[in-house]
C-alpha cells in the first residue's frame, strides 16, 4: 500500500498554515513511523485540526513540506487520498442512510469491487456484532456503535494510514475502551494510526504523543518518557504542565 519502503508513514518539516495574519499552525516538524499509534494532543484552537486537514489533503499548507504514505502533500494530494482513511466524531457517516448503505457507498467511493464489498460487509458485521443493524438508519444507531461502524468504514479499503479526529467524543469509558481495542487491532495489522483526542487517559494508549500549544509542537515523545521528563504521574499532569503557557484559549 505504501509506495516506498520508508520507515516513516508521515514526515513533516516546517509545516505552516496562515489565515490572514493568524498563524494557525506554526512550523511544525515530526515523523510518524510505520504501524505506530501517534497521539496528536492539544487544547481547542491549538491547531490540531488544521494540521490534520493539511496532512489529509483537505487544505494547502502556506509553507513547509510533508510526505504522507510516500506522497508529497503539496503536489500529490490526490495520491494521498487513495492511501488514507479519515474519521471524525462529528463527520462520521450519512445519518439518512442505513449502515449497509453507508458501507457500500464509501467502499464504492474507494474503488472496491462488489465482491470485495460483500466480503468486507460480512467481516464488519461479524467483528462488530451488528448484522441486525445493517438495514437500520445510522441516525437510529446508538453513538457507541455508530463510532465503531464509522471506524470500520474509514478503514474498509485497508489504507496504510488512518486519521482519527477526536473519534471517541461523547461516549462512555467502556465504549471508549472498546473503540481503542479496534485501534490496536488495525495497528497490529500494520496500519499507522494518527489520532487526536481530548481524553488524556487515551494518550497513555499511544506509542508516542505530541502536544500542540499555540500552533507549535511543545512536546513529543512516548507517554512514559514525557512523564519522566516532566516529573508527572499521569499524562493529564504532563499536559497541564506543557499547556500552562498557552495564550490561545477558545
Amino acid at each position: 500500500m505504501i509506495k516506498d519502503k520508508s520507515p516513516y508513514a508521515i514526515t513533516v518539516c516546517g509545516l505552516t498554515k496562515r489565515f490572514g495574519s493568524f498563524t494557525a499552525v506554526d512550523h511544525i516538524s515530526f515523523d510518524v513511523a510505520q504501524g505506530e499509534i501517534f497521539g496528536f494532543l492539544g487544547a481547542n484552537g491549538a491547531g490540531k485540526t488544521t494540521a490534520m486537514r493539511m496532512l489529509c489533503g483537505l487544505s494547502r499548507p502556506t509553507s513547509g513540506s510533508g510526505m504522507v504514505a510516500g506522497y508529497d502533500i503539496r503536489t500529490e494530494p490526490e495520491a494521498i487520498k487513495r492511501h488514507i482513511g479519515y474519521m471524525s466524531q462529528r463527520f462520521s457517516l450519512y445519518e439518512g442512510l442505513t449502515a449497509g448503505e453507508n458501507i457500500k457507498l464509501f467502499a464504492t467511493v474507494y474503488g472496491m469491487t462488489d465482491s470485495a464489498i460483500g466480503r468486507a460487509t460480512d467481516e464488519i458485521c461479524r467483528r462488530l456484532d451488528m448484522a441486525d443493524m445493517l438495514s437500520t438508519l445510522v441516525k437510529e444507531i446508538p453513538i457507541g456503535w455508530k463510532q465503531k461502524l464509522a471506524f470500520a468504514v474509514s478503514t474498509i479499503h485497508r489504507p496504510g494510514i488512518v486519521f482519527l479526529d477526536e473519534p471517541t467524543g461523547g461516549v462512555d469509558p467502556v465504549m471508549r475502551r472498546r473503540f481503542w481495542e479496534e485501534i490496536y487491532r488495525v495497528s497490529s495489522e500494520g496500519m499507522t494510526v494518527f489520532v487526536t483526542t481530548h481524553y488524556l487517559d487515551e494518550a497513555e494508549y499511544c506509542d508516542r504523543v505530541s502536544i500542540m500549544v499555540d500552533g507549535r509542537i511543545a512536546a513529543l515523545d512516548s507517554p512514559d518518557a514525557l512523564k519522566i521528563r516532566y516529573g508527572a504521574a499521569t499524562m493529564d499532569e504532563v499536559f497541564r504542565t506543557v499547556a500552562r503557557d498557552a495564550t490561545r484559549n477558545e
Binding site: 489533503g57 457517516l93 474507494y110 474503488g111
Partner: peptide, 10 residues
C-alpha cells in the same frame, strides 16, 4: 461534515 468525508476520498 459529510462533505469532508467525500473530499478526503479519491
Amino acid at each position: 461534515g459529510t462533505m469532508d468525508l467525500l473530499l478526503v476520498s479519491p
